[in-house]
Design a protein around this nucleic acid. Structure first.
Length: 139
DNA sequence: GCCAACGTTGGC
DNA sequence: GCCAACGTTGGC
C-alpha cells in the first residue's frame, strides 16, 4: 500500500464533511495541477492518505482511504483531470500541525514542507509511521 | 523556445 | 492583508 496526503481548505471541504459523506465516500475534486493529477492517478483502492486542513487549521486531522480509483472529471469533458473517491477512516486523536511537522528533522523532506503548494502529495512509509505516532494514531 | 506578466495557493 | 512560491499564459 502506498500513502498520500491530500489538502483541503476546511471552509470548502472539511474533515467533518468527509466524515458526513459516510463509508461510501465521495469524490475528491478540484485538482487542476498536473503533478497532483499524476499522484491521483497512481492511487489504488485501499491506499490511505493524511487529510490536511490548509489555511485554517494547518494540521493533519485524520486518515482517509481510496474507495474508487481515478476516473475522468465530468466537470471538465475533454480535459485530462480526474477524480478519486475517498472515505474517512478515523480522526487523529491529536492533530499534527504544520509547525510540528516542520519542527521534526525526520520530516524535513516531506512534500508538505518542500512542496508547500502541491495539493496531492506522496508520503513515504517512514513519514507515514512517524506522523501517525505524533498524532497518537494506531492504524 | 524564452521569459515577463499574471493568477493562485497558502503560510504568516 | 501581505507576499513568496510557483504554475500558466502569451508576446516576441
Amino acid at each position: 500500500m502506498r500513502h498520500w496526503l491530500i489538502k483541503s481548505e476546511p471552509s470548502v471541504w472539511s474533515w467533518d464533511d468527509q466524515v458526513a459523506a459516510g463509508a461510501a465516500g465521495t469524490k475528491w475534486d478540484g485538482v487542476r495541477n498536473h503533478t497532483a493529477k499524476l499522484n491521483l492517478m497512481a492511487m489504488k483502492t485501499g491506499d490511505q492518505a493524511f487529510f490536511y486542513h490548509s489555511n485554517e487549521g494547518k494540521a493533519i486531522v485524520g486518515v482517509a482511504e481510496v474507495v474508487r480509483e481515478h476516473y475522468p472529471d465530468p466537470a471538465t469533458p475533454g480535459e485530462p483531470w480526474v477524480l478519486v473517491d475517498f472515505k474517512a477512516v478515523a480522526p487523529f486523536p491529536k492533530p499534527v500541525s504544520l509547525a510540528a511537522v516542520k519542527a521534526e528533522p525526520q520530516l524535513a523532506k516531506m512534500a508538505l514542507v518542500t512542496q508547500m503548494r502541491l495539493s496531492v502529495q506522496p508520503v513515504t512509509d517512514e513519514e507515514w509511521a512517524f506522523v501517525c505516532g505524533m498524532g497518537g494514531y494506531e492504524g
